[in-house]
Write a protein that binds this DNA or RNA. Structure first.
Lengths: 213, 213
DNA sequence: TCGACTATTGAACAGGTGATCAACAGGTGC
DNA sequence: GCACCTGTTGATCACCTGTTCAATAGTCGA
């Protein structure tokens, strides 16, 4: 009932099925305990097989870590981006997006990201995947932002660098949350973050909850 | 001429001197290769002594890592804060500060920070030190920012949350730099970052324009 | 039913980690 | 010059890591 959550799998599975089982187990493990917890033996225990079998399906652990990273963050990105609500304007959607990314419930993915930057220093395969995923985030955000700027009167604001700043800010806050260093009101911070990035006066939203001063 | 940069130390040293030698070696090693490289044997090799001697002076490695972290980032903070130039106004000083923090030359300290967040998940002693250092940064920045806001017309901007955002943004960019994901012009980004945090129109040069909505 | 194919295992390897401790040896005081 | 004190070492422990490979055993087709 702890780490060995999955019962020992049936003795012999078709390769595709076993492979999926191992990859899924690794993804679940990384979500729970971070990318650093992805050891051959830990994955094997999680899935209920021998370390040698994990090594059989994923011979190079470094590459496996990179693969798991991509699977996790790509899924998250798809999910977050897909939660776009056409009924709302772009600015409201952006705010929702930031709130989602800063949500405590996403601390598992935050841990994966932070560890990916640290591990990327010595795992170049991982670093390349990290850059690719960040490019995708940057592109997606830039698109949303330039749309939001067009809605409001955001002339003179560079959407690309806004996206860059937004990513940096969200990622920085994620990193901080790993050591539990966070401000009291994350929602207020999300609004302030958006305002800062879109370079508008702090209180645009007519403040249903005044941010304070 | 490589990692064993220091010649083997004289056979027997007074404890304070030996201790300092070991701590200094560990700090140098962490700067070069990150906190994760701080192993008993690596530090010993760096200083030119036996692993057992390192363990003798620092019996618990986890605590030693936390200590080295504090030494490195506290020194950096002191240095950066001390480079305040009274001849310039506060905003200019803030800009210089951001530029300094984003400078490539500080990638070593950036690596220490990012690894500290990742390691802090499992090293609570380290996490506590990290929070303490971040508090000090936050306080120092908040002071500078509130001063800058008083100089210019920064009414309505909350200095505390500005400091928070600035830290997040700088830290996020540091994390990104570890996997070499960075924009071309860091100086321009520093200006844009400052403008965003102080909540002023994006292009202070071009559009001193009215902040609309 | 039996053979072939192959998924899976157990065991071992070489290398890494932090930590411990009896024994050695340099320096100082007598 | 000798003895004590203690800084320092070498060896060893238990445990971790990824990787390899011969041997086992499940399953399917003939």
């Amino acid at each position: 009932m702890n780490t060995t959550s999955r019962a020992a799998a049936p003795r012999r599975l078709p390769p595709e099925q076993r492979e999926r089982s191992i990859v899924d187990g690794a993804i679940a493990l990384a979500r729970e305990s971070g990318l650093e917890a992805l050891t051959l033996r830990a994955v094997a225990a999680k899935v209920g097989v021998t370390p040698a079998l994990v090594a059989h399906y994923r011979p190079v652990m470094e590459a496996f870590v990179a693969e798991v990273f991509t699977a996790i963050v790509a899924a998250e990105r798809d999910e977050v981006i897909a939660s776009y609500d056409p009924a709302l304007d772009l600015r409201a959607n952006l705010l929702r997006l930031i709130e989602t990314l800063l949500d405590d419930a996403r601390d598992d993915v935050a841990m994966v990201w932070v560890q990916s930057w640290a591990l990327g220093v010595r795992n170049e395969a991982l670093a390349a995947r990290v850059r690719a995923e960040m490019d995708l985030w940057q592109t997606a955000l830039e698109e949303l932002i330039s749309g939001a700027l067009a809605e409001t009167s955001g002339a003179g604001v560079d959407a690309a660098s806004s996206a860059w700043m937004l990513l940096a800010m969200v990622d920085g806050m994620s990193a901080h949350s790993l050591v539990r260093w966070a401000p009291r009101d994350r929602a207020a911070l999300a609004r302030r973050t958006l305002a800062a990035v879109l370079d508008v006066s702090a209180e645009t939203t007519a403040a249903p909850a005044g941010i304070d001063r």
